[in-house]
Design a protein around this nucleic acid. Structure first.
Lengths: 140, 140
DNA sequence: TTACTCTTTTGTAATGATTACAAATTTATA
DNA sequence: TATAAATTTGTAATCATTACAAAAGAGTAA
């Protein structure tokens, strides 16, 4: 769960990011949804609000956010890159029926023996299958 | 760890795959390496052996293998799709220094409470960081 | 063998996401 | 206000993947 951010400008500044309108809106949108949107979704959601917005800016901004560690890139399908403003360790479930991606908490796990001498910078856990909702629909 | 396959033709047939030369060689190569190669690597590794090999065939074959459940697609970076003939549940570590991807065993973990009503078809766990080897080199 | 059908492979062209790049705009600074 | 630096924008280029149709190969029956 993404913790509530009360001062978004400060949040970006503290991450070393100058808060332009575009950056604020893009992050705000990402933090407001749990849909783990793609670049196209983000662009589509904001382009009426910022009519001059360029898709390149969305790409640039997301890349900057990731470099500064305030978003995660979610690679589940090879043809669909998604983004998440919640950088805490949590799992992602992708439903192969409805295509939705949702979060789930990951049970505590001990140290991974094989990696004790490794530096770890990112951990990702994702599961694919059919969500409870789609199961109900299928079994009708 | 991929279990030893003594009869590859039978292994493919049992998975519902007619064992053509191309399919045999592609699977054989995938099973022989632990480098989790990309399409280009696979194509490059086999094109001297099968001079007429087409990259399209590699794509088609890997897609077929996945549909029949004998390989896993590994999505760690969004610009680099890799493949693994070991379909047992294990983790992947990607070193951001040398670019290599290696396997690691995953500690037992209990049921994931949030997903008890979901059907699970695939589980993926990957970690990014710096491998022990690269750490040594960096600290020289 | 031959004729026929079905499957697989191949090469080329099309697609689509992402990146490169330079001009235009905005922001910061003196 | 003038100037420099950073950011945004639009267009063109790149590159992995897919679509598609022709060619090659395998299987079957006469």
């Amino acid at each position: 769960m993404l913790k509530k951010i009360d001062n978004l400008e400060k949040y970006l500044r503290d991450a070393g990011i100058k808060p332009s309108i575009q950056r604020l809106k893009i992050f705000e949108y990402l933090a407001s949804t749990n849909s783990h949107p793609t670049v196209d979704k983000i662009y589509g959601a904001l382009s009426s609000d910022i009519p001059t917005l360029s898709k390149t800016t969305v790409y640039n901004t997301l890349k900057l956010f990731q470099k500064q560690g305030i978003i995660l890139i979610i690679n589940i399908e090879d043809n669909e890159t998604r983004f998440d403003a919640d950088v805490s360790f949590h799992g992602h479930f992708k439903c192969i029926e409805c295509g939705g991606v949702e979060d789930f908490p990951i049970p505590e796990h001990g140290k991974i023996e094989a990696l004790v001498d490794y530096d770890i910078s990112e951990k990702h856990f994702y599961i694919k299958g059919i969500c409870a909702n789609c199961k109900k629909i299928i079994n009708k």
